[in-house]
Amino acid sequence: MSDALLQTSGLCKSFGALTVADNIEFRLEPGARHALIGPNGAGKTTFVNMLTGQLPPSAGRIEFAGEDVTRLGQAARVKRGLGRTFQINTLFGALSVLDNVALGVAERRGVGGRAWRAAGSHREVRDESLELLASLGLADDAASRTVDLPYGKQRLVEIALALGLRPKVLLLDEPAAGVPSTESQRVLDVLGRLPAGVAILIIEHDMELVFRFAQRITVLVRGQILCEGAPREIAADARVREVYLGDAHG
């Protein structure tokens, strides 16, 4: 039980009288394909924001690869291998797709602050970024301005940016949100081809996608973990049907 890559114990967060995370005990195993589901307002994004260090928890502790990272800042956690994507695209819209990815790759390689040689002459950064884009089917879009891409492709850039940091754990916050159904297959394909060594925690509303992708599912309701298990168990769980699936498909 001690080899969890990411683990929280007694994690709490409240805003005034409102408790949005209540004593969350969560484990993410290496190489996991784990989904976090729950109705709107269950506190999923709050939970992810605490994992990444954007939001300080009110109580509890977060361990990453055996190290207590509760007090570490966002940048320090990124450096240790904790990557994420955002629910709403937070890309560098005016920059090219290549630059979006290369900024991350350069930071990971530790050359992001180099001030003398031209960025374009850092071949290792450019080649790695182009390779990554090609693996996501974005090779032809490398030179495009990111805001000019169709929304589905922007979601892929969001994933590419996170992958460029070579995370050990990748937190995907609704990767298919807002993607029209014609483009969602592409997102699914990409999710299916993510490197097996990366542990993935996905937050998603699209149940079809969750059940095709995840090997393990945690259900969060009103800031508390309702239950956790394999997709079959979750689908069969009466409480889940009641509080969540009933709502979502109602």
Binding site: L95, G113, A119
Partner: peptide, 17 residues
């Protein structure tokens, strides 16, 4: 033109990211 400059522009465009 350098990576440093690119990262300045990155922060200008989207500091949170």
């Amino acid at each position: 033109h350098s990576p440093f400059g690119a990262s300045l522009v990155g922060a200008r465009e989207n500091e949170a990211r």
